[in-house]
């Protein structure tokens, strides 16, 4: 049995408000999943059942949405979720090499959490910042016009070791 999941009181209130904000209750699923991720760092499977109960929607519908979109973390991430763009323009400007070097520097495999729990480095598709390639997204923030040293420096400033 997986352990039960619950949002904070404020989080649950927010989800309930989202339920009436749009024309259909289903539209609140994405905001609700965002809230889970905000509070928990990722979306644990047991939260799906919780949300189904809270929102009065079928579990299958919530799980379909959860599994379809890439921004919901399916596994825990480090405190800094570093997503290096490796789509075409970034790849042409060293995005893949940057991701690889960052993995080496922080001693993690792609998608893995570093031993100190601070860093996860993954490769992502185009983030719409191709003129500043290579670039990465750290949590919600875009960090652009990178080279390896600049990327490491930025991550250190954000608390990486």
């Amino acid at each position: 049995m997986s352990k039960a999941f619950e949002l904070s009181k404020e989080g649950a209130e927010l989800v309930k408000k989202e339920l009436t904000r749009y024309e259909t209750k289903h539209s609140a699923i994405i905001p609700a999943l965002y809230q889970v991720q905000k509070e928990n760092g990722w979306v644990p499977p047991e939260s799906i059942e919780y949300l189904a109960g809270l929102m009065g929607l079928p579990e299958s519908h919530i799980n379909e949405v959860f599994s379809f979109y890439t921004m919901f973390n399916k596994v825990p991430t480090g405190k800094l979720h570093v997503q290096v763009c490796t789509n075409i323009s970034c790849s042409m400007n060293g995005g893949r090499e940057l991701a690889k070097k960052l993995c080496e520097r922080f001693n993690v495999k792609p998608g893995e959490v570093s031993k100190d729990g601070l860093v996860t480095i993954s490769q992502v598709e185009c983030l719409g910042s191709c003129d500043t390639a290579p670039m990465m997204q750290v949590n919600d923030r875009y960090i652009e016009n990178l080279d390896f040293e600049k990327a490491v420096q930025a991550l250190k400033e954000m608390g990486a070791q």
């Binding site: 749009y22 965002y34 979109y69 919901f72």
Partner: peptide
């Protein structure tokens, strides 16, 4: 209103 997608 503004609606945020989630990566697709």
């Amino acid at each position: 209103d503004l609606y945020r997608g989630a990566g697709a």
